[in-house]
Design a protein around this nucleic acid. Structure first.
Lengths: 213, 213, 213, 213
DNA sequence: AAGTAAACGAGACGGTACGTCGTGTCTTCCG
DNA sequence: CGGAAGACACGACGTACCGTCTCGTTTACTT
């Protein structure tokens, strides 16, 4: 499942069936590669579409034809580099949770790529609801869905109480990683993920009961 | 003796003697006000120094004379609008912790101003260590120091275990707020802060012992 | 055969094939027109490339793309407005000389356009040999060549002595006109050209004989 | 009665008694020197008052206090460097005329200083009648007056016809020199002045008779 | 000798223009 | 006919000077 490529701005058109020219596949590849390269070299703010076009030996129009602005371009380029969230059931709940927290979150929010791009994207998203929506549905939600499944499995197994607030568990973990990723250069101290997971196992957040009131 | 003149953001003051030339104090005020105003209207990315200068009825050079770039300007403008962290001891540990988490963090990371500015600033900081350093020492650290004091008081009172990892407590709280602030438009659901604080009181993170190994 | 368009700085390339891109021919026209208009209104010193661009409803880059600086722009704009030097042989030497002196020189050096532009250009040329060279080869020399032909015809006819210093004749005439044009507002007194020509016919400068020594 | 204070170049004077305040006489000297120095280095167009002030270690206001603009400043600086016109009667008309043409004109219009400054000044004068007037009365006329005296002496002696158009003689000579000075880098060919003078002695321009008609 | 007032250096101020770069659109020409 | 090349109008960049202004400081002339 899961779309391999999404591109374009908000509405990604449905160029699905139109299987047109394979010829330009190279161009697209070159653009993606140049985007990532220049992102590393200059950071989001100093990345320019002109620069990408030049570096990719491509006309500017070719870039604009596929992505309406820098955010869309960068989002597309970053999109598939994202490592997958491990969900395979191993029977060992703690191990599964650790794997999720470690590989899905620590590695994600701690990676240079994300730190270089995500804040900038979220910064723009604060002004552009469409972008925020895309980020949520295309970046956050897919990852969260798989992580959620793992935690819910732990609940089903009885390793976490039935009224565990699963989304909040994830947000607590991810929030901590994001915070560290943004505010600090250095990687997480060893053992951090374990302590996070163990704290949750010891005393997980419960769903609020008076919520409905 | 130290800095001959720095002005720039934060510390203008102090340059007592070196105040030769015209030194229009109103200009600085107008610039700060215009910066905040345009920040709201356009967001960080679309904020322009030229625009600020025009809006403030000020020469561009006057802006550049005091702040070397957009980040410094915005940082200075945002700086003092930040609400204080409440630290008054009331005797009630839970109430104190709630006050800190609520007023120092939820309100801070949830505010539109911060959401509009902080990610962008952090995004630039990923490329500019100097900026990151300033953000840490001038924004994060001052707030954290006061919050830390409150939590440490709770430890001293015995309401939290002696080996509580105080910094991590704060980072967990703040991380969650930051995460929500960045990824979601809507305010925190009611009761969230309470649940966060209570979870910490029930099972706080402990300092890692094997750290040294 | 006279070049139809010259533009650019010194070396006007011969950009034959390289005409990719939009190439708005009207833009050039508008720029030339605005340049001349603002030259009249403000004079060379107060002429601004920014002003020209604005007046011509053209981006600044479009101006800079074709002319590297104000001098080149103005030179190009003035270039073709220059009236031609009459050379048609009429059989009447005195009449031909008068025509040349009158139309090629008096009208040229006496015209407001020239007075407004030439000194400034020559002033810059004093610092920029390339500009001086262009002025000589593109403004002075073409005009002189044709005037020289007329005077040489007079020599061939025997109306002037064989050892007449033809260049000096022209420089004397032009020098006088230039002097008057620069130092005085008012037009030449009537009959001046006649007196100049007649003085030359009566006693033309001879080529120096001892020159080789 | 007009002008309350003019100072500008030439006539500073007049402020006799009112010399309260500091009055740093050296400042003026330094300004003049810096002006000439930078004029040589950069030419008129690239000379800036700011640059002069800095180079002279003087406040900008000090420059503006004495000269209202660049033209006035430069005019003042150049003013007194001008060599004198030799007028001493030697009895030998041809020698006297040669001395005038050589020293007053060839040297003047041929000098680098003049070539660097005069065209620019005249260029501005085309737009500013006041400046043209000053140039005429303070630069051209004083020199011309003395030269005229010499030529008139030649007329009185009978070495030139009584109806010689004396001003035109001077303008012819000066015009030729000016022309050469502006259009050519190289000095006058040897013997040029002699040929000019001799041509005039052989066939001087006469005053127009039919002028009144 | 103390007071006072102008001129001084320094340089901040509101501006205009510089020459460059990037944006997003549009045109031309080549393969 | 698709795409690179790049011209186009626009707008912002960061810098340099403009001419005016306000600072203290430094004379030199009153009183």
């Amino acid at each position: 499942m899961g779309r391999t490529r999404t591109l374009h701005a908000v509405d990604d058109d449905a160029d699905a069936g139109s299987t047109r020219g394979r010829r330009d596949l190279e161009a697209r590849e070159r653009i993606m590669a140049s985007t990532l390269k220049l992102l590393q070299e200059r950071g989001y703010a100093r990345l320019t579409i002109e620069g990408v076009a030049t570096d990719a030996a491509v006309g500017k129009a070719t870039v604009y034809r596929s992505w309406p602005n820098k955010a869309a371009l960068v989002l597309a380029a970053v999109q598939d580099r994202l490592a997958d969230v491990p969900t395979a059931p191993t029977g060992d709940t703690r191990a599964e949770l650790l794997a999720v927290a470690e590989q899905a979150m620590a590695r994600f929010y701690g990676s240079g790529e994300v730190r270089l791009v995500l804040p900038a994207l979220l910064g723009e998203a604060a002004r552009e609801p469409a972008l925020l929506e895309r980020l949520r549905t295309e970046v956050l939600e897919p990852r969260n869905a798989r992580a959620r499944a793992v935690v819910e499995r732990a609940v089903a197994r009885g390793d976490l109480p039935a009224d565990t607030d699963v989304p909040m568990v994830l947000e607590q973990w991810a929030g901590y990683m994001l915070f560290r990723g943004l505010w600090h250069d250095d990687p997480l101290p060893e053992g951090t993920v374990e302590r996070l997971v163990d704290a949750t196992l010891a005393s997980p957040p419960r769903r609020a009961v008076w919520q409905g009131k």
